[in-house]
């Protein structure tokens, strides 16, 4: 049907030569056309991703002026930047903070997102669209800009959150002034921004669980907890792991929230890898060491990427 409709506009422009020969010619030219069509993509992937990645590794081995390799004492020649980082207390604090931040934020986002998706799935489908639209707003606003609003709500002198706390008799909180409160503030903003994304992913997954499974479980006398544990979670396992790993990558490499909210302070205690690399590499002008810092993100990102890819391939096979 659809094919018939599409033939009409194409027919007049077909060459007059016989069908067989034109098919042969197409087959011959097919690979050439394919290569031509993928060339721009290859330019982007190789020129702007693969080459910079390799160049970043090379940069990390240079000395500050980039005149030669960075000498090292106990690591092999050229790894001096890594040696200095390993011996620096600030760097280890950054590494810990990155892990604490990423893991806590992702777990909270996953839990809040799952809860929201579940609540949304419960209400009649007519109202779902409206609620979904409203709850996704934090994800739509560019995070650098919404973080400005949070910064203003956390402001030491004018904090509107503290004002509300005071109404309920809760003592004022030094949101960005004290180490653990500042770390918590960053996590709060990240969860606020990312939880709606989890909600959308989980809601799509919840809708794809066949209703018959729940009916069968109900007939077998399953409680609502058992339905969640033995029907919903196994059916959603793959999408949950893909979303969590994907979010782990993005959260681990987060930059804008830290930059706007605390800029690494107080006393460099809220820096994550990305913001520390920025501080060292661009602001202090030590490009090679900055490159070395950002390279530390690579191993964990590579592990996550491997499992995301595996999950996605498995999912595609299931759907086929």
């Amino acid at each position: 049907m659809a094919a018939d409709a599409s033939t009409a506009p194409i027919m007049p422009s077909a060459p007059n030569s016989g069908r067989a020969s034109s098919l042969q010619r197409l087959a011959r030219r097919r690979s050439t056309i394919a290569v031509l069509m993928t060339t721009p993509l290859l330019v982007v992937l190789i020129g702007l991703v693969a080459y910079p990645a390799g160049y970043g590794i090379y940069l990390s081995t240079l000395n500050r002026r980039m005149t030669g390799f960075m000498e090292a004492e106990w690591l092999p020649h050229g790894l001096g930047n890594f040696e200095i980082l390993f011996e620096s207390e600030t760097f280890w604090a950054v590494a810990w903070q990155s892990c604490i931040f990423a893991i806590t934020a992702v777990i909270l986002k996953a839990l809040v997102g799952f809860w929201l998706a579940h609540m949304l799935h419960h209400i009649p489908s007519k109202g779902q669209r409206k609620w979904r639209g409203m709850l996704l707003v934090p994800w739509v606003i560019p995070p650098a800009l919404s973080t400005l609003g949070w910064w203003w709500m956390f402001d030491p002198a004018y904090s509107s959150i503290n004002w509300l706390f005071q109404v309920f008799g809760i003592p004022a909180v030094p949101w960005l002034g004290e180490k653990w409160w500042a770390r918590l503030s960053i996590i709060i903003v990240n969860v606020w921004y990312g939880a709606p994304f989890f909600m959308i992913m989980y809601l799509a997954a919840l809708k794809s669980v066949p209703e018959q499974l729940y009916e069968a479980a109900a007939i077998d006398g399953a409680t609502s907890w058992q339905r969640l544990r033995y029907v919903t979670l196994p059916m959603m396992a793959n999408i949950i792991s893909i979303t969590v790993l994907f979010s782990l990558i993005v959260t681990f490499a987060n930059y804008d929230i830290v930059r706007v909210l605390t800029n690494g302070g107080p006393r460099d205690l809220t820096h994550v890898f990305a913001s520390y690399a920025f501080q060292v590499g661009i602001l202090s002008g030590n490009i090679p060491r900055g490159a070395a810092v950002s390279l530390f993100m690579f191993p964990i990102l590579a592990i996550c990427a491997f499992f995301v890819l595996r999950g996605v391939t498995r999912r595609n096979k299931e759907q086929m």
Binding site: T38, L41, L42, L45, L48, V49, P52, A53, Y55, G56, L59, F246, I249, V250, F252, A253, N254, Y255, F273, A274, A277, F278, G281, I282, I287, G290, A291, S294, L295, M297, F298, L301, C304, A305, V308, L309, V312
Partner: peptide
């Protein structure tokens, strides 16, 4: 190449900005 496309999607900008700066 299709797999490579997906993998590059997972490369965050904060990993590349210093070499790209150069």
């Amino acid at each position: 190449l299709a797999t490579g496309v997906f993998l590059t999607y997972l490369v965050p900008d904060t990993l590349l900005f210093i070499p790209l700066y150069q």
